[in-house]
Amino acid sequence: MGRGKGMVNPKLKDELNDQLCEAMLSLETVDECYQFFEDLCTISELKAMSQRLEVARMLRAGHTYDDIVARTGASTATISRVKRCLNYGADGYRIVLDRLAPGEEKEPSHK
């Protein structure tokens, strides 16, 4: 039986991952986040996570793959993976994007 949307993947749930999540929740400022991620991740790991979040934001706003590649440099494989997570994942991107930009338009403006 599969897990429902929004449920924590039991393969991920353990004491060390709980500790990591609690550590992230303890950060209070953008500067603290930078300090923590600088110590925790390589620069390329951090850039990859930032890129995936921007890909998710752009997909949700209705941008084309070509627009997303031009802005982020992400591969079409990465864009497809993020799109799959947006459609069938645990709703993590949705939660974060809703909180970062409540009420933001979902479609790009065509000027």
Rank of each mutant, 00 (worst) to 15 (best):
T72S: 09
F37K: 03
L27T: 04
T29R: 08
V30S: 07
S26A: 15
I79P: 07
L46K: 10
M24C: 14
A61G: 05
L40H: 09
N87M: 06
R52I: 01
H110A: 12
S50W: 04
G4A: 13
A70I: 00
E45R: 05
E105W: 05
L12P: 01
Y93M: 05
V69E: 11
C41D: 12
Y34V: 15
K111H: 14
V55A: 04
V8S: 06
M49R: 09
M1P: 05
A90Q: 07
F37T: 15
K106S: 13
M7W: 09
K11W: 07
Y65P: 00
D66E: 13
I43Q: 14
A56F: 03
E28M: 10
H63F: 14
T29L: 05
L53Y: 02
P10R: 06
T76W: 01
N87P: 00
I95G: 02
F36T: 14
Y65G: 00
S44H: 10
L97E: 02
R99L: 13
N17K: 03
E105R: 15
S75L: 11
L16M: 12
D66S: 05
P10T: 03
D67A: 03
L20I: 14
D66K: 07
E38D: 15
A56K: 00
E15H: 09
V96L: 15
R99N: 14
Q19A: 15
K11T: 06
H110S: 12
M7V: 11
I68F: 10
S75A: 14
A23E: 13
T64A: 03
L97S: 06
A48Y: 02
D98Q: 11
S75E: 12
F36A: 15
L20C: 10
Y88Q: 11
C85G: 00
P10E: 05
P10N: 03
T76H: 07
M58I: 03
N87E: 14
E38M: 13
C21F: 12
D67K: 00
I95H: 08
E45G: 12
V55R: 03
G89I: 04
R57N: 05
I95K: 11
D91M: 07
V82T: 08
N17A: 04
D14W: 01
G89W: 03
D31G: 06
L12Y: 08
R81N: 07
D67Y: 06
R84N: 09
C21N: 08
K47H: 10
L20G: 09
T72V: 04
E45M: 07
P108K: 15
T42S: 15
H63W: 10
H110V: 14
R3Y: 11
V30C: 02
E54F: 08
I43E: 14
V30H: 11
K83R: 13
L16V: 13
M1R: 09
A90V: 02
D39T: 13
A101G: 00
K111L: 13
A70P: 01
V8T: 10
G103N: 08
L100G: 01
Y93G: 04
T78G: 08
G4V: 04
L59W: 02
E15S: 12
E107C: 02
P10A: 02
I95L: 13
R52N: 06
